[in-house]
């Protein structure tokens, strides 16, 4: 492979192309950013992504909103979102790792069926499962509870995570485990001490995906939580948009804040992302 790459002109063209593509793709995001800093409740008519004047009023208003009981709604919502998303990540990763390990390493009757069922389950349109899920959670007494929401989110994330993790596990050679088994290690110890440390990329992907599923989810959170102090960030942001009028400035400010953690998580876990999703598929 020529290390030099194409001619300097070619390189400039590529960079130019990338810049243009970036600008096009990031334009909507810039509009949101602009609205978050521009005064006024409506979007301006101009298409320019540069705000005509800058103000922090929207952010100030966002952070100072108080509920009827006097607590700061946004911080409360952020705390709820963080707790729920982190819990979902832990539970989701735990459930998916064990399940994927079983599907990858063991042969048992119903294994193939189990594998296809994880794919098939993705085919249910989840918006239509809302009402039955409500009935079930009500029956289990898990309505309006953090645990209930965490369980539902983790379960939603499982299929994709199992698919990713299984692919990755498949690509790891079995000899490592053989050696450990001969030495007398139990299956659980092999899982914990050998498989997991080797699977960091895939686990990073799984964790990120679980986190994102929980962090960005709106419909289930708004239907199942009846206590205002349990609302998550997406629910709070949507409440700025009512039937008749919307405070788009507040909405945009909330959107910016809500998107930050995911972006940061993406940036930090970037190198794992690339390796984790595909390693199994390519090598396997």
């Amino acid at each position: 492979m020529k290390r030099r790459g194409p001619s300097p002109l070619g390189q400039i063209l590529v960079y130019l192309g990338l810049i243009i593509a970036c600008a096009i793709i990031l334009y909507p995001v810039m509009i949101v950013l602009k609205k978050a800093f521009e005064p006024g409740r409506q979007f301006a008519l101009s298409a320019s992504p540069v705000p005509s004047s800058v103000t922090l009023d929207h952010f100030r208003e966002l952070f100072s909103q108080r509920s009827a009981t006097g607590e700061l709604m946004f911080l409360r919502g952020a705390l709820n979102s963080i707790v729920i998303s982190l819990a979902t990540t832990v539970v989701g990763v735990a459930l998916s790792c064990t399940a994927a390990y079983a599907l990858s390493r063991f042969k048992f009757p119903g294994r193939k069926a189990g594998l296809t069922s994880f794919l098939v389950v993705q085919m249910f349109p989840s918006t239509l499962l809302l009402m039955p899920l409500y009935v079930i959670l009500n029956g289990l007494g898990l309505l309006n509870s953090t645990i209930g929401l965490v369980l539902v989110y983790s379960t939603t994330a499982i299929p994709f995570c199992v698919w990713t993790l299984k692919g990755y596990f498949d690509s790891l050679p079995a000899e490592l485990e053989e050696a450990a088994r001969i030495d007398g290690a139990s299956q659980w110890m092999i899982f914990r001490k050998i498989m997991l440390p080797l699977s960091r990329p895939a686990i990073a992907v799984t964790a990120l995906f679980s986190f994102m599923t929980a962090w960005n989810e709106f419909i289930l959170a708004s239907t199942f939580m009846t206590d205002q102090s349990k609302y998550t960030l997406p629910v709070l942001i949507q409440s700025t948009v009512t039937e008749f009028s919307a405070d788009w400035g507040l909405f945009a400010a909330g959107a910016v804040i809500t998107s930050l953690p995911v972006m940061i998580a993406f940036y930090v876990l970037q190198k794992y992302l690339v390796g984790g999703i595909t390693a199994g598929a390519v090598k396997g």
Partner: peptide, 24 residues
């Protein structure tokens, strides 16, 4: 009197599911 703000979009659906179940 305990006030709870519910997002408008989900309001009617929450009500119709919650009240018959005794949770409203």
């Amino acid at each position: 009197l305990q006030l709870v703000a519910v997002p408008y979009g989900a309001f009617a659906d929450k009500l119709t599911s919650a009240i018959p179940g005794g949770n409203g």
